[in-house]
Design a protein around this nucleic acid. Structure first.
Lengths: 273, 273
DNA sequence: GCGCCCTAAAATGCATTCATTTTTCAGGCC
DNA sequence: GGCCTGAAAAATGAATGCATTTTAGGGCGC
């Protein structure tokens, strides 16, 4: 699917030390998009397809942050982004306000926006909230699950088990995520789904190395937990499933944290200010 | 504490039928605030104390919506609000974007903002999410609760019981809310607290008549549930408390819905489009 | 050399202005 | 009378401009 956006798509920053740096000097004629405003004639042809600049910018910035293109802790270069995206500051600033509300950036009064740094304590908090949301999803799913829903999840489960046996980490992850998402969807609560998606975005930024290959014990444990999940789901045991899911997330975090610790021990870094 | 705000404080709308209506013709010299901009000299003395217009406007609008001053379903009159608040459209629009992200208003492209209508199905969703968050809070509280924390909650509980015996609805509600808030606080998870606060705001709009006086059975049941809550908290039984809290919220909703239904039956309305 | 003060440049907050879209409503047609 | 048409009015989205604050340098004194 092609880029249907009005906005330019370029690398923004290169340095990770918090000092923003232009990758290449600004040249509107090369990378940017002709300004839409009053001066030049706004093209009438499918210009802003999805809708309005603000929403597009919002999506784009979210991606930049989640993908790490705007590094954590870095100041968000308002001016530069405007040039890169070929827009004025107004829609950008609107998007920044929303991102701040979502918890992705901090807005310092009169001192601009900074990409929120995800320290360990906040990551714990996020994982716990995710655990709480999944626990809720599990409970609601038990109330609303159709047999068709269950069959689909069961299929995913068995497929995932196959990946587990073959030690196919990639396939395993895909199925794993699909199962969790299916449970949330089966909860049939749009508010929950939206909230879950927001937090999933915030967690995804962490890019913790859930390298199950390096943690065979955890992989087996996770698989066993998923057996329990499927079983509880089958029995429509809401409270039980709720509990399993929360602990599942907790264990997932613990494994990730353990690995992070090991990596830090092996090669100490100063990233965790 | 007085109104430390820059912004005027006036009634905005009077009609509840979705058509916004000016209460009184606009007259900057009477109700409004002198424009801050370049034209008139911006007062140097403590003008915007808390901080920046955007944040203040945001808080103010949230209040307007939660308090019902901006009725559900009504269009948000951008121009009028600007005049009333004595600001330009820029900060207002920024605030609207954030409110939309919070789920309080809908933003229709090119067609302005409307206060989100809270229909029954969404109220169910919100209650369930609140239940899930409280369930999480209970679980975490059990992990982190100090004896001092517990004692404080126990005191609140007994105070609430006193109100219950005396059929003091007001005092009961106050204690009830304080207990639930204390549990969330005891979870010691700032992310959870913030999320909880957001949803609490959204639910508060509903102003469902949780008239326990008219539902004695529920009141007794609620009190019994709170006994269980306190007991589970005392035993630090996280999973159990989690379950109780979710069901507690469910029952609370059911009671509210039952009363709403009775009221509708008594006096049918067409508000629930 | 190091820190402080002062000035210039940049960034930020908000107001204002411009271009478009939507809405309103008067007039004409059926 | 009701309904469509279309132009004027209002509302919206975004750009630009101005005032203020913050930041970056540079000169000065210690």
């Amino acid at each position: 699917m092609a880029n249907t956006s009005t906005l330019g798509r370029t690398t923004l920053l290169d340095r990770q030390d918090g000092r923003s740096q232009v990758v290449a000097p600004f040249d509107p004629s090369s990378e940017g998009v002709p300004p839409r405003g009053r001066g030049s004639g706004t093209l009438p042809g499918r210009d802003a397809p999805a809708g309005h600049l603000h929403g597009e910018v919002l999506t784009r910035l979210r991606d930049y942050i989640v993908e790490g293109e705007l590094p954590a802790g870095a100041r968000v270069p308002e001016r530069l982004l405007c040039e890169r995206l070929g827009i004025s500051r107004t829609p950008l600033r609107e998007a920044l306000k929303v991102l701040a509300a979502e918890g992705l950036i901090d807005l310092l009064p009169n001192r601009g926006a900074r990409v929120r740094r995800l320290d360990e304590s906040e990551l714990i908090e996020l994982f716990d909230v995710m655990g709480g949301l999944e626990a809720l999803a599990g409970r609601l799913a038990c109330e609303n699950l159709t047999d068709v829903d269950f069959d689909a999840i069961e299929r995913l489960h068995h497929e995932m088990y196959g990946h587990y046996l073959r030690r196919d980490l990639h396939g395993y992850f895909a199925c794993n995520q699909a199962i969790h998402q299916a449970i949330v969807t089966a909860a049939r609560n749009a508010t929950l789904s939206a909230t879950y998606a927001t937090f999933a975005g915030r967690v995804r930024r962490a890019r913790y190395s859930a390298n199950l290959d390096a943690d065979r014990d955890r992989w087996g444990e996770a698989m066993r937990e998923h057996e329990e999940i499927l079983d509880a789901l089958h029995r429509r045991a809401g409270a039980e499933l709720s509990d399993i899911l929360f602990r599942h997330l907790r264990n997932k975090y613990r494994s990730a944290a353990r690995q992070t610790a090991e990596r830090v021990q092996a090669k100490p870094v100063h990233d965790l200010t």
